Amino acid sequence: MKEYYVYIMASKRDGVIYIGVTGNLVQRVYQHREGIIDGFSKQYKTKRLVYFETSSDIESCIEREKQLKAWRRQWKKELIEKANPQWEDLWSSIAS
């Protein structure tokens, strides 16, 4: 069964955040980290994976991404800190 991900990248703790959805989290985070794709994430250097959710339903991931993007910054911060209080880069936990 295919897995999809809603994820949050950050420039640093309490820094700029980027919310996205993907079917290949390792590849997409690598692209963010290396600045491969032009756009918001490259411009603001959101290279740290600080949060992600998984689902087998792409439609629910897209809806969740839209929901998170509409949230106030404080709510996003609380979501991240509930799972990752120090805003640690989760790259090593998904790349191995």
Rank of each mutant, 00 (worst) to 15 (best):
Q67L: 10
K42N: 09
D38V: 13
R64G: 01
N84Y: 09
V29K: 00
K47T: 11
S11D: 13
K66F: 11
V21K: 06
R33Y: 08
E78T: 12
K82S: 15
I94M: 07
K76T: 06
V16M: 15
G20D: 06
V29L: 05
K77C: 02
I17L: 08
P85W: 05
E81P: 00
Y7M: 03
R48T: 00
K47G: 03
Q27F: 15
L68A: 01
F40A: 12
A95P: 00
P85D: 02
L90I: 05
S41N: 08
I17S: 02
Q86L: 15
R72I: 07
W87H: 14
I58G: 04
R13L: 03
V6G: 00
Y4C: 06
I36W: 11
E59D: 14
R48G: 00
E81F: 01
M9W: 05
L90W: 07
S60M: 12
F40D: 09
S55M: 04
Y18L: 03
I62F: 11
I17C: 04
K42I: 01
A95M: 02
V21E: 07
Q67M: 08
Y5E: 03
H32C: 04
R28S: 09
V29N: 02
K2G: 01
I17F: 09
I36G: 05
S92R: 12
I58T: 04
M9I: 03
K12P: 00
T46M: 07
Q74T: 13
V50W: 00
S60T: 11
G20N: 08
I58R: 14
K47R: 12
V6Y: 00
E63P: 00
Y5R: 08
K2Q: 09
I80L: 07
K82E: 15
A10T: 07
R72A: 13
K42F: 04
F40W: 12
S93C: 12
Y5K: 06
W87M: 14
L79H: 02
T46H: 08
K66W: 09
W91E: 06
G23C: 04
E34W: 15
K66T: 10
I17M: 06
Y5F: 13
G35Q: 02
K47H: 11
I62R: 14
E81S: 01
I8T: 08
I19G: 00
S11I: 07
Q67I: 04
D57W: 09
G15Y: 02
Y4K: 04
K42D: 02
D89N: 13
Y44G: 00
R33K: 13
I80K: 04
E81H: 04
L90P: 02
P85I: 05
D38I: 10
L49C: 10
L25Y: 05
